Amino acid sequence: MTAAVIRSAAPTDKAAWLTLWQGYLAFYGTELDEAVTAMTWSRIIDPTSPVFTRLAVVDGVIAGFATCILHPRTWAVEPACYLEDLFVDPASRGSGVGRALIDDLIATGRRDGWTNLYWHTNDDNATARRLYDSYDKADGFVRYRLPLRK
């Protein structure tokens, strides 16, 4: 397997992204309304949206994605980047695709002046946490999620 090439998502990537997206949702044991998936894709390819996706391409096949939201901060002038979704095709796991996606975001953030890159994961996601812990240890914050609609 050759090294992953990381690039921005393009409109022509929809079918490949959708396959990975469905795998990502299955991994987390969830389903989303088709309208949510359609809106997510629309945001990804809209150049004016703060949502963007980087794709990992290995041997011509999209093997993973990182979907992020670039947003302003109250504690800094420069923006921060929230890595909301990271997924690697199971056939490509352990080959460096996840690391290549994160490294790409780090390089982009340093180039573009982001204050930080951050993300969340389930505490029992041991495989991903081994990768994440190689960058830094979890910061100890506890997340609260209040549903605002039924």
Rank of each mutant, 00 (worst) to 15 (best):
D136N: 09
L101V: 00
I44N: 03
W41M: 08
A26Y: 09
N125R: 13
Y82V: 07
A56I: 02
W41R: 04
I102K: 10
A76I: 14
D33Q: 01
H120Q: 13
R54K: 14
G23E: 06
G113I: 14
G94H: 12
D112K: 04
T48N: 15
T127C: 06
S134G: 12
S95H: 06
N122V: 07
S134M: 12
D46C: 03
L117S: 08
V58K: 02
P79G: 09
A76C: 15
P79L: 08
F27Q: 13
G29Y: 15
L86G: 04
G94C: 13
D89R: 03
C68I: 14
T115N: 12
D123E: 11
L105P: 01
Y132N: 09
V51F: 15
W114A: 06
S42P: 05
G60M: 05
P90A: 09
A63L: 10
A38F: 03
L32C: 00
Y28A: 08
A76H: 15
R129L: 14
G96N: 03
L86F: 03
A126E: 15
G29V: 15
D46N: 11
R99S: 11
G98M: 08
D133N: 15
D89P: 01
V61D: 10
T37A: 05
E31Y: 02
L32Y: 01
R73C: 12
L70R: 09
L55I: 09
F87L: 01
W41E: 07
D103Y: 05
D133R: 15
V36W: 04
A56Y: 01
I102S: 01
K137F: 02
G29L: 13
A38N: 07
D136T: 12
T108C: 03
R129I: 13
Y132A: 14
L25D: 05
L117F: 04
A126N: 10
S92F: 11
W75F: 11
V51H: 12
V97K: 00
Y28C: 03
S92T: 03
